[in-house]
Write a protein that binds this DNA or RNA. Structure first.
Lengths: 325, 325
DNA sequence: CAACATATGTCAACCGGTTAACATATGGGG
DNA sequence: CCCCATATGTTAACCGGTTGACATATGTTG
């Protein structure tokens, strides 16, 4: 690999001059600039970003921690984050926590050792305290840590509300909500809050199915739902906390001979592309993932630049009614 | 951020000694080791990996270039690559080429500037020549570049053969294959080779639908398939090059009132988790993604370590028969 | 002609580690 | 008592850029 010294020698100028060209600072004549660029070309030179990062104390790398990129929601999130990061000159170091606290912790340490400029946390397996300790810029996704750590979220309460109201409007008399663990104080729990509020207000009997501490296992979802629907065969409306869960629900209904949407209305969450791919297309509450991702990257950048940022960043959701309601 | 000097001072030893502890080299007494570790703990010290990378000329970062991680196949691939990389002490820098040649090229340059140890290329928008020029370790996914660049693939010919044979065995009389552009010399094209070979051998009429240069657009798939099936209503068997395409096919069939599998047999490819999630569950040719990913990481590692590696790494595929055939 | 903008060079320090070379000290084994 | 393994320190160079301080030279302008 050629170094800046090789370039300087080849172009017949000093190292300082090459650095000046590279960084566009100080006075440089067109002629010299051309000579330098030509030398770089000839040597196929590319500046060593590791050396630059060391000096600048800036790596232009963002660490992204997700539970697993194999999950469609996080895959889409990751794709968006990557796109915006790229557009702003950042690179993305991808970390899948696999919902394993120790892996997540190790990843956090690793990211710090590697001097990433900031971390976008979309996996939350650790105690809130652990996140508070972090000394580098962090933006969380859908979780409040402290009012020193900005977070990006969408209007979960409104999303839950719209979902239940749609179910009721479509005539459901007995409904259920399936969600992740409610022990963790995730913002997504507001969906359940809304679900209960509306159900109670309208005096509609309701059930809650809490999955274990964040599992993404299809089999588990199906089992839980099948148990629920056999025990409570009168349930005619399901609100699921993800589209994947909604697909599980559709499968179970098919198995139990319940027609969708005639016998059972189903509404998912996130509106991943999958939701409109399957048949019937899933009614879902859409989170503005693109905007949320863009905002996360922007927040990291603002933090790095030392700009003041808003702690709460809540974007609106949208109900996408399709064929399952 | 504390430095190694701060640690040395606090522990009352020299920088060299701290470095010795950190890297486990030379003689170190237990007492000193403890003192050093304690100082690190107290200072919350973590070695700066950027500085280390600079000196070692090793970043322990692998660049992964995929068309887009939002596509389930690449999302799963990415998840596996990440897991194996993590297990072996590597980090993953994620790059989505979005099938844009210039973005892919820029990413390659970026990865080089950032001194990644190697690149796993699962996106192939550039000319073969461009890849040959790369001076750093590269492993490609499903594409042959030259016999200096190892590649990981699965038995595409066999996969195509099994797919068509299953269709015929299930009684199809007129079949079609939908695939990406056949102009690029992708190894996946062997599936089409096999498709034609078998169809001709058995004298079954067949059709080919080539999508444009690698699009991942659902709408496009549906349009192409709908056109085909309205023009050739007698087609009763479809072999699709991905499970996403298979889902598009199912949608079109539903629209045209063709029952699956009675009126139309469908077989996808990859066996992403989606394939067994939707209803009816998709019959698909399974690529051993986990093994392929593991192998890719291992190959990069071997190349980095200067070990000899095999150029062709072809793993077996498996037919997963489900409900669409 | 003085003053200043433009253009380039030299030199050295710095970013935060790593390492080789060499010095020094201690304690145990033969 | 000598030799050697063990343990630690000192010093300096190095990885590949960046930057500030300062020197120098040329050309332009009022």
């Amino acid at each position: 690999m050629p170094t800046i010294r090789d370039v300087a020698e080849r172009a017949g100028v000093s190292v300082t001059t090459v650095s000046r060209v590279l960084n566009n600072r100080g006075y440089i004549s067109e002629a010299t600039r051309r000579k330098v660029y030509q030398a770089m070309e000839e040597l196929d030179y590319q500046p060593n970003e590791v050396a630059r990062s060391l000096f600048r104390k800036r790596s232009n790398i963002i660490g992204l921690i997700v539970p697993t990129v194999a999950h469609p929601f996080f895959a889409e999130l990751t794709a968006y984050v990557e796109a915006y990061a790229y557009a702003r000159g950042y690179k993305v170091l991808l970390c899948n926590s696999e919902l394993d606290a120790s892996k997540e912790q190790e990843y956090i340490w690793m990211l710090r050792r590697n001097q990433v400029d900031g971390i976008i946390m979309a996996s939350h397996t650790l105690e809130v305290e652990e996140y508070k300790k972090l000394s580098l810029p962090v933006v969380t996704f859908d979780r409040f840590i402290s009012n020193r750590i900005p977070y990006v979220t969408s209007d979960n309460y409104q999303g839950g509300k719209m979902a239940v109201e749609l179910l009721l409007q479509r005539g459901c008399r007995k409904i259920a909500h399936m969600c992740g663990s409610l022990d963790l104080d995730m913002l997504a729990n507001q969906r359940h809050r809304a679900f209960m509020d509306v159900a109670e207000e309208r005096q509609v009997p309701y059930f809650t199915v809490e999955t274990d501490i964040n599992v993404f296992e299809m089999g588990k979802y199906e089992k839980l739902l099948e148990d629920l629907l056999t025990q409570e065969p009168e349930i005619d409306g399901l609100f699921l906390n993800s589209d994947i869960m909604a697909i599980a629900a559709m499968k179970v209904c098919r198995k139990l001979g319940k027609r969708i949407p005639e016998d059972m209305k189903i509404i998912g969450y996130d509106d991943v592309s999958l939701a409109s791919l399957v048949s019937p297309q899933i009614t879902s509450v859409r989170q503005p993932l693109a905007e949320m991702s863009e905002l996360s990257v922007k927040l990291i950048e603002d933090l790095v630049e030392g700009r003041r940022v808003q702690v709460e960043n809540c974007l609106p959701v949208e109900l996408m009614e399709r064929e399952t309601t």
